[in-house]
Computed example of a mutant assay.
Amino acid sequence: MANALVVIPTYNEIENIEKIVRTVFALQRDFAILVVDDNSPDGTSVLVSQLQSEFPSRLHLLSRKGKMGLGTAYIAGFKWAMEETYEYIFEMDADFSHNPNDLIRLYNTCHKEGFDMAIGSRYITGVNVVNWPMNRVLMSWGASKYVQWVTGMDIHDTTAGFVCYKRQVLEHINLDTIRFIGYAFQIEMKFKTYLSAFKIKEVPVVFTDRTKGTSKMSSGIISEAIFGVLKMKMKSIFNRLEI
Protein backbone atom coordinates (compact mmCIF):
# COMPACT_ATOMS: atom_id res chain seq x y z
CA MET A 1 0.00 0.00 0.00
CA ALA A 2 1.23 3.51 -0.82
CA ASN A 3 2.31 5.61 2.17
CA ALA A 4 1.58 8.86 0.32
CA LEU A 5 -1.85 10.24 -0.57
CA VAL A 6 -2.52 13.05 -3.05
CA VAL A 7 -5.72 14.94 -2.22
CA ILE A 8 -7.23 16.53 -5.35
CA PRO A 9 -10.35 18.72 -4.93
CA THR A 10 -12.54 18.93 -8.01
CA TYR A 11 -15.42 20.92 -9.38
CA ASN A 12 -16.09 20.52 -13.11
CA GLU A 13 -12.71 18.97 -13.92
CA ILE A 14 -13.88 16.25 -16.31
CA GLU A 15 -11.46 17.55 -18.95
CA ASN A 16 -8.46 17.03 -16.66
CA ILE A 17 -9.20 14.35 -14.08
CA GLU A 18 -8.46 11.18 -16.03
CA LYS A 19 -5.19 12.53 -17.38
CA ILE A 20 -4.00 13.73 -13.96
CA VAL A 21 -4.87 10.39 -12.37
CA ARG A 22 -3.01 8.38 -15.02
CA THR A 23 -0.01 10.72 -14.88
CA VAL A 24 0.34 10.40 -11.10
CA PHE A 25 -0.02 6.64 -11.22
CA ALA A 26 2.69 6.44 -13.90
CA LEU A 27 5.29 8.04 -11.60
CA GLN A 28 8.23 6.03 -10.22
CA ARG A 29 7.00 6.62 -6.66
CA ASP A 30 3.83 4.84 -5.52
CA PHE A 31 1.13 7.41 -4.71
CA ALA A 32 -2.56 6.97 -3.91
CA ILE A 33 -5.14 9.61 -4.87
CA LEU A 34 -8.24 10.88 -3.11
CA VAL A 35 -10.52 12.96 -5.32
CA VAL A 36 -12.81 15.22 -3.27
CA ASP A 37 -15.60 16.19 -5.65
CA ASP A 38 -18.20 18.86 -4.89
CA ASN A 39 -21.05 17.34 -6.91
CA SER A 40 -19.62 18.50 -10.25
CA PRO A 41 -22.47 18.86 -12.76
CA ASP A 42 -20.11 17.86 -15.59
CA GLY A 43 -19.84 14.29 -14.29
CA THR A 44 -16.32 14.42 -12.83
CA SER A 45 -17.22 12.01 -10.01
CA VAL A 46 -18.86 9.58 -12.43
CA LEU A 47 -15.64 9.36 -14.43
CA VAL A 48 -13.59 8.88 -11.25
CA SER A 49 -15.93 6.06 -10.21
CA GLN A 50 -15.32 4.38 -13.54
CA LEU A 51 -11.55 4.73 -13.16
CA GLN A 52 -11.71 3.12 -9.72
CA SER A 53 -12.39 -0.24 -11.34
CA GLU A 54 -8.99 0.07 -13.02
CA PHE A 55 -7.19 1.33 -9.89
CA PRO A 56 -9.21 -0.19 -7.02
CA SER A 57 -6.58 0.12 -4.28
CA ARG A 58 -5.04 3.46 -5.31
CA LEU A 59 -7.89 5.71 -6.44
CA HIS A 60 -10.45 6.89 -3.91
CA LEU A 61 -13.44 9.21 -4.19
CA LEU A 62 -15.11 11.41 -1.61
CA SER A 63 -18.31 12.92 -3.02
CA ARG A 64 -19.85 15.97 -1.35
CA LYS A 65 -23.31 17.43 -1.78
CA GLY A 66 -22.33 20.76 -3.32
CA LYS A 67 -19.70 23.42 -3.88
CA MET A 68 -18.50 24.19 -0.36
CA GLY A 69 -15.09 25.81 -0.87
CA LEU A 70 -11.52 24.70 -1.45
CA GLY A 71 -10.55 24.75 2.21
CA THR A 72 -13.39 22.54 3.35
CA ALA A 73 -12.61 20.10 0.53
CA TYR A 74 -9.04 19.74 1.75
CA ILE A 75 -10.13 19.45 5.38
CA ALA A 76 -12.49 16.62 4.39
CA GLY A 77 -9.64 14.98 2.51
CA PHE A 78 -7.22 15.38 5.42
CA LYS A 79 -9.70 13.85 7.84
CA TRP A 80 -10.21 10.94 5.46
CA ALA A 81 -6.43 10.45 5.27
CA MET A 82 -6.10 10.51 9.07
CA GLU A 83 -8.47 7.54 9.28
CA GLU A 84 -6.06 5.60 7.08
CA THR A 85 -2.32 4.90 7.46
CA TYR A 86 -0.79 7.44 5.07
CA GLU A 87 2.37 9.13 6.34
CA TYR A 88 2.55 11.85 3.69
CA ILE A 89 -0.46 13.82 2.51
CA PHE A 90 -0.37 16.18 -0.47
CA GLU A 91 -2.45 19.04 -1.82
CA MET A 92 -2.52 19.28 -5.61
CA ASP A 93 -4.78 20.84 -8.25
CA ALA A 94 -6.43 18.73 -10.93
CA ASP A 95 -5.63 21.08 -13.81
CA PHE A 96 -1.87 20.44 -14.30
CA SER A 97 -0.93 23.86 -12.97
CA HIS A 98 1.11 21.73 -10.57
CA ASN A 99 3.47 19.36 -12.38
CA PRO A 100 2.83 15.82 -11.05
CA ASN A 101 6.53 15.02 -11.49
CA ASP A 102 7.25 17.44 -8.65
CA LEU A 103 5.34 15.20 -6.23
CA ILE A 104 8.48 13.10 -5.91
CA ARG A 105 10.62 16.14 -5.10
CA LEU A 106 8.18 17.24 -2.38
CA TYR A 107 8.01 13.69 -1.03
CA ASN A 108 11.80 13.43 -0.84
CA THR A 109 12.01 16.78 0.94
CA CYS A 110 9.90 15.38 3.77
CA HIS A 111 10.86 11.70 3.65
CA LYS A 112 14.61 11.97 3.03
CA GLU A 113 15.49 15.47 4.23
CA GLY A 114 13.32 15.37 7.34
CA PHE A 115 11.12 18.41 6.78
CA ASP A 116 7.54 18.39 8.07
CA MET A 117 6.05 20.53 5.29
CA ALA A 118 7.32 20.90 1.74
CA ILE A 119 5.88 23.73 -0.34
CA GLY A 120 5.97 23.76 -4.13
CA SER A 121 7.04 27.39 -4.38
CA ARG A 122 6.54 29.72 -7.37
CA TYR A 123 8.55 32.54 -5.81
CA ILE A 124 11.55 31.07 -3.96
CA THR A 125 13.81 31.53 -7.02
CA GLY A 126 12.19 34.52 -8.70
CA VAL A 127 8.77 34.29 -10.37
CA ASN A 128 8.18 30.88 -11.96
CA VAL A 129 4.71 31.25 -13.45
CA VAL A 130 3.74 30.39 -17.03
CA ASN A 131 0.73 31.64 -19.03
CA TRP A 132 -0.60 34.10 -16.45
CA PRO A 133 -1.30 37.71 -17.46
CA MET A 134 1.03 40.17 -15.77
CA ASN A 135 -1.71 41.64 -13.56
CA ARG A 136 -2.45 38.23 -12.09
CA VAL A 137 1.23 37.48 -11.54
CA LEU A 138 1.64 40.78 -9.71
CA MET A 139 -1.50 40.17 -7.64
CA SER A 140 -0.36 36.69 -6.60
CA TRP A 141 3.24 37.71 -5.89
CA GLY A 142 2.07 40.81 -4.04
CA ALA A 143 -0.38 38.78 -1.95
CA SER A 144 2.37 36.41 -0.88
CA LYS A 145 4.66 39.31 0.05
CA TYR A 146 1.82 40.97 1.98
CA VAL A 147 1.14 37.76 3.94
CA GLN A 148 4.85 37.26 4.56
CA TRP A 149 5.10 40.80 5.96
CA VAL A 150 1.98 40.56 8.15
CA THR A 151 2.65 37.10 9.57
CA GLY A 152 6.44 37.17 9.79
CA MET A 153 6.73 33.77 8.14
CA ASP A 154 9.95 33.14 6.22
CA ILE A 155 7.94 31.72 3.30
CA HIS A 156 8.04 33.33 -0.13
CA ASP A 157 4.96 31.59 -1.60
CA THR A 158 2.47 31.79 1.26
CA THR A 159 -0.54 31.15 -0.99
CA ALA A 160 0.90 28.06 -2.71
CA GLY A 161 -1.51 25.16 -3.10
CA PHE A 162 1.05 22.46 -3.90
CA VAL A 163 2.09 21.07 -0.52
CA CYS A 164 3.29 17.90 1.19
CA TYR A 165 2.53 17.38 4.90
CA LYS A 166 3.94 14.80 7.20
CA ARG A 167 1.14 13.05 9.04
CA GLN A 168 2.10 14.51 12.42
CA VAL A 169 1.46 18.06 11.19
CA LEU A 170 -2.16 17.27 10.36
CA GLU A 171 -2.53 15.31 13.60
CA HIS A 172 -1.24 18.32 15.57
CA ILE A 173 -3.42 20.98 13.95
CA ASN A 174 -7.05 20.90 15.02
CA LEU A 175 -8.66 20.83 11.59
CA ASP A 176 -12.00 21.87 13.06
CA THR A 177 -10.50 25.28 13.94
CA ILE A 178 -9.57 26.13 10.33
CA ARG A 179 -11.72 29.13 9.43
CA PHE A 180 -10.83 30.06 5.86
CA ILE A 181 -12.67 28.25 3.08
CA GLY A 182 -11.12 29.79 -0.04
CA TYR A 183 -7.50 30.15 -1.09
CA ALA A 184 -6.69 31.82 2.23
CA PHE A 185 -6.98 28.30 3.63
CA GLN A 186 -3.46 27.78 2.26
CA ILE A 187 -2.19 30.69 4.32
CA GLU A 188 -3.88 29.55 7.52
CA MET A 189 -2.44 26.03 7.25
CA LYS A 190 1.08 27.36 6.69
CA PHE A 191 0.77 29.88 9.53
CA LYS A 192 -0.40 27.28 12.03
CA THR A 193 2.33 24.89 10.89
CA TYR A 194 4.86 27.71 11.31
CA LEU A 195 3.57 28.68 14.78
CA SER A 196 3.81 25.03 15.82
CA ALA A 197 7.56 25.09 15.02
CA PHE A 198 7.43 22.39 12.38
CA LYS A 199 10.26 22.34 9.84
CA ILE A 200 9.18 23.93 6.53
CA LYS A 201 11.03 24.02 3.22
CA GLU A 202 10.11 25.65 -0.07
CA VAL A 203 10.93 23.63 -3.18
CA PRO A 204 11.11 25.64 -6.42
CA VAL A 205 8.51 24.61 -9.00
CA VAL A 206 7.12 26.05 -12.21
CA PHE A 207 3.42 26.87 -12.06
CA THR A 208 1.64 26.60 -15.43
CA ASP A 209 -1.85 28.03 -15.78
CA ARG A 210 -4.59 25.60 -16.74
CA THR A 211 -5.27 24.99 -20.43
CA LYS A 212 -8.60 23.20 -19.88
CA GLY A 213 -11.51 24.06 -17.60
CA THR A 214 -12.09 27.36 -15.80
CA SER A 215 -10.40 29.09 -12.88
CA LYS A 216 -12.19 29.24 -9.51
CA MET A 217 -10.61 32.58 -8.47
CA SER A 218 -13.00 35.32 -7.32
CA SER A 219 -12.92 38.74 -5.62
CA GLY A 220 -14.41 37.20 -2.47
CA ILE A 221 -11.46 34.84 -2.21
CA ILE A 222 -9.04 37.76 -2.48
CA SER A 223 -10.87 39.75 0.21
CA GLU A 224 -10.82 36.76 2.54
CA ALA A 225 -7.06 36.57 2.18
CA ILE A 226 -6.37 40.29 2.65
CA PHE A 227 -8.56 40.93 5.69
CA GLY A 228 -8.51 37.43 7.17
CA VAL A 229 -4.74 37.42 7.48
CA LEU A 230 -4.74 40.58 9.60
CA LYS A 231 -7.36 39.10 11.92
CA MET A 232 -5.45 35.82 12.15
CA LYS A 233 -2.20 37.62 13.01
CA MET A 234 -3.86 39.72 15.71
CA LYS A 235 -5.34 36.62 17.30
CA SER A 236 -1.91 35.00 17.37
CA ILE A 237 -0.39 38.06 19.08
CA PHE A 238 -2.93 37.81 21.90
CA ASN A 239 -2.74 33.98 22.05
CA ARG A 240 -6.31 33.63 20.85
CA LEU A 241 -5.54 31.67 17.69
CA GLU A 242 -6.62 28.06 18.09
CA ILE A 243 -4.14 25.54 16.69
Rank of each mutant, 00 (worst) to 15 (best):
V163D: 00
T23I: 06
Y123W: 12
G66P: 08
R58G: 04
E113C: 13
F55E: 08
S121E: 01
H156D: 10
V163G: 01
Y194L: 10
R22E: 14
T85W: 06
S97T: 09
I119E: 00
M1G: 10
I222S: 00
Y183R: 06
I226G: 09
N16S: 10
D102P: 00
I181D: 09
P100D: 06
I8F: 05
G66S: 15
Y194W: 07
K166D: 06
E242G: 07
D102L: 07
R179Y: 06
G220N: 12
T72Q: 13
K212E: 14
I178V: 13
N135Q: 10
E202H: 03
I75Y: 04
A81I: 03
D116I: 05
G71T: 00
I237P: 08
V6T: 08
D176A: 14
K235F: 11
V21T: 15
G182A: 08
Q50T: 12
T10R: 02
I20V: 13
F238P: 07
T10P: 01
Y107K: 04
L138V: 13
Q28P: 06
E54P: 06
D95T: 07
T109V: 03
G77S: 02
L59R: 04
L59N: 01
Q168L: 14
F78P: 00
N135H: 15
R136V: 11
E83N: 14
M117K: 13
M82H: 00
M234R: 11
R22N: 14
N3P: 00
D157A: 09
G161V: 13
I119N: 01
Q50I: 09
S53T: 13
Q168Y: 10
I75W: 03
I17K: 02
M153Q: 04
Y183H: 13
N239D: 13
D93S: 08
F191S: 05
M189V: 11
H172Q: 12
A184E: 00
R29E: 14
V6H: 00
D157P: 02
K67G: 10
G152N: 04
V169F: 02
L106T: 05
V229E: 01
Q52Y: 04
F185E: 10
I155E: 06
D209V: 12
A32L: 08
S57Q: 10
V48K: 06
G182Q: 11
V203F: 01
L241Y: 01
Q50F: 11
Q28A: 14
G142T: 04
I237A: 07
A184V: 10
N99K: 07
W80Y: 07
M153P: 04
V147C: 09
S121C: 09
M117F: 07
E13S: 12
N12C: 13
M92S: 05
A197P: 03
F55H: 09
S223Y: 05
